[in-house]
């Protein structure tokens, strides 16, 4: 099978949801490599409660698509052990919010074995998990938490925003010799039962291809202000960028795509060009991604900035249930637009 290194500019007219793009990436790798198995709760007949594994059971059978008991420590650790012995398991943690019951297997085992072994043992495993809110699932089922995973050394963290990247990053994650935490946003999956942005459906090349882990994408070029963001917030930022044309503001949107490794170059190049930085992050504001991006610029050269950095993130509060309350804390279009105005009219 031919391997394309960078995602071909999607000349294809075939459009998929993010969920279907993920499944296609997994299926192509399962065809190619018998060591790829899918393990998790409701990944079989149900197809993943956010459709990340839909149809795989029918295609590959119960020996390769395995429902588990609700024993996250046991089955994530099982994935690690299988990876150590050369398999390439994709293990799904149903919601990122559930890491509390199994984090030891994730950050003390999956992520540290390569280091503790002095590089002698590798753990080529994908930990796939659902992140994000926007549909009133409350404080325990709506968090992004990618900053927490990215903070802990030893695991790569990818955060696709669109179908083409979702497929390419999944293929890259499976082929990577390191543990990769693959965090998809529920609101970007294109699910029929959740309000969605049209950007959650998009052109996806049919063949297998890798989207490089550790390279950000300039999702939209602009001259006046840089929005650095990730996952579903990229879709909001692109919407705002289009709105702002009418106000004569030219917004550049940088889609990080991966948090570990982080593409500092692309961030710095963009900020050097526009001189204005807004970081939009659906994770909690303090001690996280938005602070990290601001720090990168401050460390490199604070003089790149013509105005103070703006952050649009979840204020440090658990995600509320009531629609109006959740909307008030999520980094939605209104909040992003207000930040752009603050920065460009100042």
């Amino acid at each position: 099978m031919s391997v394309t290194q960078t995602p071909p500019a999607p000349t294809t007219s075939r459009r998929l949801t993010t969920a279907k793009a993920i499944v296609e990436g997994i299926a192509q790798e399962m065809e190619r490599d018998p060591g790829v198995v899918v393990i998790g709760e409701d990944v079989g007949a149900y197809g993943g409660i956010f459709s990340s594994t839909a149809g795989l059971l029918d295609r590959f059978g119960p020996d390769r698509v395995m429902d588990t008991p609700i024993s996250e420590s046991a089955f994530i650790g099982l994935g690690t052990g299988a990876a150590v012995e050369g398999m390439r398991p994709i293990v799904e943690l149903m919601f990122a919010d559930f890491f509390g019951v199994c984090m030891d297997q994730i950050y003390n085992h999956m992520a540290k074995i390569h280091f503790e072994s002095g590089g002698h043992v590798t753990v080529p495993m994908v930990l796939m998990t659902a992140a994000g809110g926007g549909y009133s699932d409350g404080a325990q089922h709506s968090q992004c938490l990618w900053g927490t995973f990215a903070h802990l050394p030893g695991m790569k963290v990818v955060v696709p925003s669109n179908p083409a990247d979702a497929k390419g990053l999944m293929i890259s994650a499976i082929r990577d010799d390191n543990p990769v935490v693959y965090m998809f946003h529920k609101g970007a999956m294109g699910l029929p039962w959740m309000a969605k942005n049209p950007r959650s459906v998009g052109p996806v090349p049919e063949e297998a291809y890798e989207t490089p882990i550790g390279r950000a994408a300039v999702a939209r070029e602009g001259a006046d202000v840089t929005i650095v963001t990730l996952s579903l917030s990229v879709q909001h930022a692109l919407d705002v960028a289009e709105d702002m044309i009418g106000e004569g503001v030219d917004v550049e949107v940088v889609d990080l795509r991966s948090l570990v490794p982080l593409d500092r170059e692309t961030v710095l190049t963009s900020v050097a060009k526009t001189g204005r930085l807004i970081v939009v992050d659906e994770d909690y504001r303090s001690y996280g991604v938005s602070g990290e991006i601001a720090a990168i610029v401050a460390e490199q050269d604070p003089a790149l900035l013509r105005a103070p950095v703006q952050r649009v993130a979840v204020p440090d509060v658990p995600l509320p249930y009531a629609r109006v309350l959740e909307d008030a804390v999520l980094p939605n279009r209104e909040r992003i637009r207000a930040a752009v105005r603050r920065l460009t009219q100042a």
């Binding site: 198995v37 420590s73 046991a74 089955f75 994530i76 650790g77 099982l78 994935g79 690690t80 052990g81 299988a82 990876a83 150590v84 012995e85 050369g86 398999m87 398991p89 030891d104 297997q105 003390n108 085992h109």
Partner: peptide, 15 residues
Amino acid sequence: EGLPPALGQAFAFKR
């Protein structure tokens, strides 16, 4: 926490 990785090694051997 050493138990789950052993399960995975056994799983790989069985496979």
